[in-house]
Design a binder for these strands. Structure first.
Lengths: 106, 106
DNA sequence: ACGCACCGTAAGCTAACACTTACGAACCTG
DNA sequence: CAGGTTCGTAAGTGTTAGCTTACGGTGCGT
């Protein structure tokens, strides 16, 4: 499935990719339709979709002539978990560090 | 102030920068100490810290010979808000799209 | 004052990345 | 079958991003 375990952060670091991803949260779309609303060419969108797919964030399904891309619920969950992990880890460590300024007093 | 409004994603998209940021959540540190635990040189860490600082995620304070970098609580809050905004937006749109699969044609 | 440690910045290099055009495959419609 | 879509991929290009080395500035200790 997802070839990368923690790709969410870096994958969504790109603006275009975030836009594509957000559009897909609104509705599943074909490649050409996505490209129409973007300032980049259709093959560029296709390549972004491949990256998103390899990260497990989207899934694709053939529909006759076209290919419909949609959000992958599992990938969405993993992304959520990744963000949660990062955030809680950062917050707990930060709180602990604030409440114990033991190390280095200025 | 944070020079960018949505810098969180792209700034923390880099692995080294995420590591530095997480280390700073544990305890404020000087540049050299940070560089010691990383596979990159000290100037590289310095440059990363500048990016983090411009994004409003960290603050620095001179301490004699050295310069102590620490997490910026305001930046942490803004990051939290940004992640929340992204997540809720994505989730609400996604749920709505799932409950109305009639819109597939465009 | 002298030497040493710590740090920021400039300059330059390299690899990765996002993008384009060109091409071929698969599909539907007449 | 012929023609027109839709799409993925290969090949090539320009830019950016992260990294290194080199250098200058500042503060501390002897």
């Amino acid at each position: 499935m997802a070839t990368n375990q923690l790709a969410g952060w870096s994958v969504l670091g790109d603006r275009t990719r975030r836009t594509i991803f957000e559009r897909l949260t609104n509705r599943p779309s074909a490649v050409g339709d996505l490209a129409k609303g973007l300032p980049v060419s259709r093959p560029a969108v296709s390549q972004h979709l491949r990256v998103l797919k390899e990260a497990g964030l989207v899934v694709d399904r053939p529909a006759g002539n076209r290919r419909i891309y949609a959000i992958n619920p599992d990938g969405l969950g993993e992304l959520r978990a990744e963000l949660d992990r990062f955030w809680t880890s950062a917050m707990t460590a930060y709180k602990a560090a604030v409440e114990q300024p033991d190390e280095e007093k200025t």
